[in-house]
Structures are given as C-alpha cells and as structure tokens.
C-alpha cells in the first residue's frame, strides 16, 4: 500500500484530469443536449431531422471509435488539436446525444395546458421553450441526466487509449512499475465509485430541491 501513498502526486494530477474531462464535457453536453432537444421539438422540419440524425449517429457509434477518429483522422484533414481538448470535445458531442434523449423524456412531462397558457399570454415559440418547456423538462430529467453524467465520468477512462493521462492511464503506468494490478485497479475503481456516488447524491439533492409539485 505504501507505493500508493508515494504515487499520490501523479494520481491526484491524473484524477484532476479525469475531473476536468467530466466537468467540462458534462457542462458542454448538458448545454448542447438541451439545444438539440429544443431543435428536436421545434416546428422547423430541417431542425427536427438534423437533431434526430445527430442523436442517432452518436448513439450508434462507439465512443472509442469517435475518439480514435478525432485524434488520428482529423489531423490528416488539417485539424491538430491537443489531446485533452480533443477528448473533451468528443465526449461533449457524444454525451450530448444521451443528454438530449434524457431531456426529451422530460419534455413529455410539461403540461400541454401550460404551453397553451404561455401562447395565450403572447410568448413566442422561443420564449415558451426557454421559459417553460426547457426548465420543466430539465427539472423532470435531473435523475436521467445524472445517470448520463455518471456514464460520462466512466467514459473518460477511454481517453487513456488516445494518450490523455487521466486516472486509468495513471493506474496503468503505476502498475507497469509495481505489478500490483488488483490493488491498483481496485483503488482506481474506488475513486470512480466515489465520483459516481458524488454525482448521484448531487442529482438526488437537486431533484428534491427542484422537483415540480403539481
């Protein structure tokens, strides 16, 4: 166990990268996913189809493929971004599809009468979406979005495959020296569990606080 304490520095740094990936891609995917949902329920057919296509594409392509594609194919097309930003962008685009699905499940809980009332008050469609539909959908979707955020946190481990030094990558490296895979990966697993627990508890508290009483 001593070596775990001795490696605390690099592990903490790698954990920081994992958290950076999760938080940046988390915020990005919630914003983007919400916009996609808005497009998906808009009256503009082109937007609706584009949003539908977006979700279908990202739900049906493995994240690892997207990461490898972004890291190794985009430079050939002339875009060479550093690895961590690339991973954040790919995670954001990928998880946004799942956030969009979660938010869309919340849209069904918005009262039809309330939408009618907002129209009767003179709200434009955009205002109805912004003031009524999206806030209520997000509130109803807090738990599903929390689950997407947990999945996102686990998915950050795939960034190790394309060179980002995050928690899993650091665990690999440590194990190469120490040859204690069970101990090292159990420790890494416990850290991921703690992150998932923190997200789950936060989602639970938010839901309790923001729940809509009808």
């Amino acid at each position: 166990m001593d070596f775990l304490a001795a490696s605390a520095g690099p592990i903490a740094e790698a954990l920081g990268t994992t958290i950076l990936l999760a938080v940046a891609a988390g915020i990005g995917s919630i914003v983007l996913g919400t916009l996609i949902t808005a497009a998906r329920i808009s009256p503009v057919p082109v937007l609706r189809w584009a949003a539908f296509g977006y979700v279908q594409f990202f739900v049906n392509v493995p994240l690892l493929v997207l990461l490898v594609l972004a890291v190794f194919a985009l430079p050939d097309a002339g875009f060479l971004l550093p690895l961590t930003p690339t991973a954040i962008i790919v995670l954001t685009l990928y998880e946004a599809a799942y956030v969009a699905e979660a938010v869309r499940s919340g849209v069904n809980t918005v009262g039809k009468g309330e939408i009618e009332a907002s129209r009767a008050l003179g709200f434009t469609l955009g205002q109805t979406l912004r003031v009524l539909v999206i806030p209520q959908s997000l509130r109803a979707a807090i738990q599903p979005i929390g689950n997407v955020m947990i999945a996102l946190t686990m998915n950050t481990a795939l960034a190790a495959a394309v060179g980002v030094v995050e928690l899993t990558s650091a665990a690999n490296k440590l194990n190469l020296v120490e040859a204690q895979p069970i101990l090292i990966f159990t420790a890494a697993g416990l850290i991921y569990m703690a992150l998932a627990l923190a997200i789950g508890l936060t989602a639970g508290r938010l839901e309790k606080k923001l729940r809509i009483r009808r």
């Binding site: 490898v68 890291v71 190794f72 430079p75 050939d76 060479l80 690895l83 190790a160 495959a161 394309v162 060179g163 030094v165 990558s169 690999n172 490296k173």
Partner: peptide, 19 residues
Amino acid sequence: TIVSFATDPQALQALTQGR
C-alpha cells in the same frame, strides 16, 4: 512529457501527425 497510446500503429500515426 510522456504521451501514451494504446497500440503501436496509433503511436506511429501520432508521431507522423506531429503529436
């Protein structure tokens, strides 16, 4: 600064792409 990739072909690609 160490950047590690999962497979040898990926690492080679990363070198030629200037990563």
